[in-house]
Amino acid sequence: MTSVTDVNEKSPLANMGSSGAYQKLLAFASLIALLIGFSIASPNFMQTSNMIAILQATSVNGVLAVAATLVIITGGIDLSVGTLMTFCAVIAGVVLTYMGMPLLLGVAAAIGAGALCGLVSGTFVAKMKIPPFIATLGMMLILKGLSLVISGTRPIYFNDTPGFDQISRGSLIGKVIPSLPIPNGVLILFIVAIAAAYILSRTVLGRYTFALGSNEEAVRLSGVNTDVWKMRIYALAGGICGIGGILIASRLNSAQPALGLGYELEAIAAVVIGGTSLSGGRGTILGTIIGALIMAVLTNGLRVLSVAQEWQTVVTGAIIILAVYADMVRRKKSG
C-alpha cells in the first residue's frame, strides 16, 4: 500500500484472529467432531434422510438465529423472536385461511407484520430508551397473547391454500437432483443467511450495526442518527422472524398459536455458540448458522442414540456454557 508511511510496532498477528474467526473455527471443528462421533456411535446417523431431517430442523431455528444475530451485534438482545414467529404465522393464517387471500399476499403480510413488530421493539429501545432485554421481553409476552387472541387459541390450518405446505416441505433442488431432496425450507434459510451476511458486510445498515455495538456514543457524536438506524435493524430482524413464521406454518401446515416460547433461547444459544459477542460489535452470520447446526446435530444425534429427551436438554445447556467459556479463555489469552 503506497499510503503506508511507517509500520506500527504492534504485531500484525494481533489483527488476524478477530474473535469471530477463531470461534467460528472452533465451532466448525466441534460440528465436524460431533458428526464423526455420532456416525461412529450409530450407523443410522449418517443416512441421507437423517441428514436432511437435521437440516430441516435447523431451518426455522436458523432463520430466527440470523434475526437475533443482527440485534445482538448492535449490543442489544431480542427475546421476542420466538413468539413473533408465531404471531406472523397466525397473521398468515388470518390472511390466507380466514380471508381467503392469495398465497403471496399471505407471505407478504407475515413478513410485513414481523417488520412492523420489530419496528415497535426498535422504537421502545431507541426512542424510549427501554433496555432491549425488557423491551423485547414485553414484546415477547404481548405477541404471545395477541397470537392466542387473534386465533381464538385454536390452530389455523392452511388446507384451503394449495401449495402453502410446499414452501417449506417441497424440494426445488430435489426436482433438479433427485438424489438430493433438500427441502425448500433449508434453501430459504441459506438465502436469508446469505442476504443477512451481505447486508452486514456490504451495506451502510450493516456497518452501523457493528458500529452501534462497538461504541454507540461515538457513533452518535459522529453526527449519525443512531435511533433511526437502530429501529431499522430491529425492523429487519422482525421481518426475518416473519420468514421464520412462514417456514414453521408451512412445515406444520398450520399456525399453532401456543408455539414459540423457548425458540428465542435456542436462537440466542446458536448465536452465542457461533461466536457472536453478547456485548455487541462482533459477530458473523456464518458462525450463527454453524451454531444452529450444532444444536440440531446434537438434538438429532442424541435422539438417534436413544438418549432420553430430558438429558438432551441438559447436554445442550452444557454445550452453551462450554462454547462461551472457550471463547473467554481465548480472549483472556490474547489480552
Partner: peptide
Amino acid sequence: HFGLATGMNVRD
C-alpha cells in the same frame, strides 16, 4: 469512549 469505534478499522 466518545470518539472512536475502537473495535473497527481505520477505514470504517
